[in-house]
Amino acid sequence: MADVLPADGSVTHAAADSGTASLHRNVMIGIAIALVIAPFVAYPVFVMKVLCFALFALAFNLLLGYGGLLSFGHAAYFGMASYVCAYAAKHWGFNPEFAILAGTGVAALLGLVFGSLAIRRQGIYFAMITLALAQMVFFFSLQTPRFTGGEDGIQAVPRGKLFGMINLADDRTLYWVVALIFMGGLLAFYRIIHSPFGQVCKAIRDNEPRAISLGYRANQYKLAVFVLSAMLAGLAGSTKAIVFQLASLTDVHWSMSGEVVLMTLVGGLGTIFGPIVGALVIVSMQNFLATLGAWVTVIQGVIFVLCVLLFREGILGVIAKWIKKPL
């Protein structure tokens, strides 16, 4: 919060703290190495699930951590992208890369429409509006079974051949593609928050009237960060549809929006790498506890309450405090 922003928007803080920059570079390299090792020590489909949700949580955190906007309806972009991608791949025979692009594009458009409505209100109202808009998308999905397959969802989505050449039916092959998509998303996220644009967004988050008085059009920045966030969420949703060959109502339901909030909260709100850790923790938990049925909801609720009461910094927030460097 102590970032000082010069009026021309150029960034001093990354350069002033080269130790932080090299730390982040090392963490990125560490993540890349972990991604290379992961499929040999863990079940690839599980790792891909973690990566999709990590990307989703990164998208959510872009909006909350750097735009200061808590969206309670991110499932709308995730789920709608997942539907569009699945539909394009299955019924139009799109190659996976174009299906994912289509899903991501639709999510960005939806983000543009919903974002321009939601940024008209702030704080608590913003959260309620995004939630209500997402619920509208849920009902739309429920009532258009010709497009979404209704309660069944779109099943048996073909994974297809990437660029018409690489067959993705094999989990190992698909894994590398998903890992690349995730890494690309992470780098894009990192680039966005360290760009002049990202710095202005932070300034607006911390003190909107001051940023406006400095001549920044706060609403345009908010809308832009909203669209970027929806787009990343769409990328995550589309990739998920290809991995699991399924798009269903679960992806657009409000509980999905709640889950992504939880992942980010556990990992650390406003930290760069926290959402990845949060996604890993929550997805693993769901896997281990899958046999417990409805207790998973109760446990998630308990984690929510404990995090808010005792552990607001999240896992990486606490580590960042120890090493005295932002993560």
């Binding site: 808590l70 609720g301 929510f304 808010v308």
Partner: peptide, 26 residues
């Protein structure tokens, strides 16, 4: 959490709702 940002209240009560609904469902 009264002294914190309003959003934490939303998150906390959301968590409580999950707990209560989950318990009744069980």
């Amino acid at each position: 959490i009264a002294h914190l940002d309003h959003l934490y209240g939303l998150l906390l009560t959301f968590g409580l709702a999950l707990i209560i609904q989950g318990l009744f469902r069980n």
